[in-house]
Amino acid sequence: MSDYLVRHAQVFLSSVGQLVRSPGSSLLTVLAIGITLALPTLLYLLVENVQNVTRTWQGRAQISVFLQLDTTNEAARALQDVLAARPEIESSRLITAQQALEEFKNQSGFGAAMDILSDNPLPASILLHLKTGHDQPELIENLVRELEANPEVDLAQWDMAWIKRLHIILRLVQRSVLILAALLVLAVIIIISNTIRLAIMNRRDEIEIMKLIGATDSFIRRPFLYGGVLQGLLGALCAGAIVSACVGLLQDPIGELVSLYHGDFSTTGLDPRSFFTLLLAGSALGWLAARAAVGRYLGQIEPA
């Protein structure tokens, strides 16, 4: 067993050696893989961050429930109690018809005009703040419909319909990222399998000789598989560096922009888990690509 490990270690080191011996082309390949892997990673981060932003916005999601004009203050208060008891409601505030009129007079500047009216034309209303977790557009719409079924309620209004649109746009972006990622992953596989193919062709004579002196196919395959994994891994490391650099460059302007609206959002970069996933994905792609190239081209080389 330890012999087996030692042999694998030797092959792995010789793969490293192969890369080091041709640093120019190895570097270019690794860079190409890095850039190709960096693109979907950056897009993934973009989607993550936008989702974070909308999450903080939806924390503020509120529904205005306007009551019928003839609702008494007592009935309104009773309804507020009923609504406040619902599980999805964080807090509620009752604005009576009188309060609404006061507010309107103060804010609109039409105070004198309102005095002419004998009756208060404004309805009482209840402001509902939703708990996080109950703020997806579908749930909110259901709630709005339920509220409007109440006989005292004239109109329930959810003033953030545009969040729904944003959600749909996000879903679209997410899917586009997925498609793009699939294409780029394919590109990485093609890049790596091509370099492995070239490596196999360059070492054609050596492979023939190895076969002549009794090397098994798996023995011959091994250094190429390690080479593929190594390229994928280094490419992923390179992608990680590119992504970190990009996030670093964008952090300040984004922070400034965000602070213009509300300051409780910070950009998320590549956390350790995502970084590890990236490395794992790179290595796996390298292995897959090498496997494909080896399966296709190694069999063609037979001593004659």
Partner: peptide, 28 residues
């Protein structure tokens, strides 16, 4: 097997060339 054209690996030393069948066979 000994070949007329030797079939040696020219990027490896004499020692490594001779060792190749043993490496291939997994000998320590």
């Amino acid at each position: 097997v000994v070949f007329q054209d030797h079939k040696l690996l020219y990027d490896q030393t004499v020692f490594d060339n001779v060792a190749l069948p043993l490496v291939v066979a997994g000998i320590g």
